[in-house]
């Protein structure tokens, strides 16, 4: 029995279910029929050569990009390529209420303090009382080791600190799942370590995470499943010990040889 089937048999339903996802930029087909599931509490890692469609895939999941064919179901809400405008808006609101996203370049609001960055969405989107949102934001900042930087502007923080603020900002909305789009790619090794440590803690706490990364050590340590993307397709999937230690596909072997150096 496959892992997905076992999960279903055990009564688990996937938080993310993607079926036959296609995305085109003009003539170029960026995603060519991606099918993938992520179970609640799992950490799924997506690896693969640049240009393979990894980031585009994540952006399609929370509606930052439209897709051309297929179906995305997140926490019971389905996104389709051709949806009536009001239905699509409602579906996207639902999806984004359950999905947080952490970007490669942090994308913090530069005109707000760290604390304001974190409370902005809870107060204005989730309508949490401001005092409650601020208390929770301070707790989250403590959790990512940045309690002392609450009143600073993002511009004066290091890259690693900014990324940890971005993680706290995503967590502030109590998401079911967080999508990480190469969260350490623009960081030096020390900052990468800081961010991966926070992510590992979240993984241990059972947060569902879908992570696009080149950090193989993190994938081996934290992931339950590793998916290899190449030219818009999932060329290989499986547990990290199989995909990273004993890859079946030539593309995966080649990528890992370069990734491990």
């Amino acid at each position: 029995m496959s892992e997905v089937a076992s999960a279903r048999a055990a009564g688990q339903s996937p938080v993310i279910r993607v079926a036959d996802l296609h995305k085109r930029h003009g003539e170029l087909e960026v995603l060519r029929g991606i099918t993938l599931e992520v179970q609640r509490g799992d950490v799924a890692v997506i690896i693969g050569p640049s240009g393979g469609g990894k980031s585009t895939f994540l952006r399609c999941l929370n509606g930052l990009e439209r897709f051309d064919e297929g179906r995305v179901t997140i926490h019971g809400t389905t996104l389709l390529p051709q949806m009536e405008r009001s239905l699509e808006a409602r579906a996207l609101r639902e999806v984004r209420a359950h999905v947080g996203m952490v970007f490669q370049q942090f994308h913090l609001f530069p005109h707000m303090t760290v604390l304001e960055n974190i409370v902005e969405a809870p107060i204005h989107v989730a309508h949490v009382p401001p005092e409650e949102a601020r208390t929770r934001a301070r707790t989250l900042l403590e959790r990512v080791g940045l309690a002392a930087k609450a009143e600073r502007r993002p511009g004066v923080l290091s890259g690693g600190e900014q990324q940890r603020v971005a993680i706290a900002r995503a967590l502030a909305m109590n998401p079911e799942v967080i999508l990480f789009d190469e969260p350490t790619s623009s960081l030096d090794p020390r900052m990468t370590g800081e961010v991966l440590s926070v992510m590992s803690d979240l993984a241990q706490e059972g947060l569902t995470m879908l992570v696009v990364t080149h950090a193989m050590a993190f994938a081996r340590k934290a992931a339950k499943h590793v998916h290899v993307f190449h030219e818009g397709r999932v060329v290989e999937s499986g547990p990290p010990e199989q995909v990273l230690e004993d890859p079946r596909e030539r593309v995966t072997r080649e990528f890992l040889r370069l990734a491990w150096g």
Partner: peptide, 24 residues
């Protein structure tokens, strides 16, 4: 990217413009 970050947090476009883009 700032607009995208706001949208990804669930903010509406109007909210993103008035609370994030315009103040920036």
């Amino acid at each position: 990217t700032i607009r995208e970050a706001s949208i990804a947090l669930g903010a509406t476009r109007a909210h993103t413009i008035m609370k994030v883009v315009l103040p920036a």
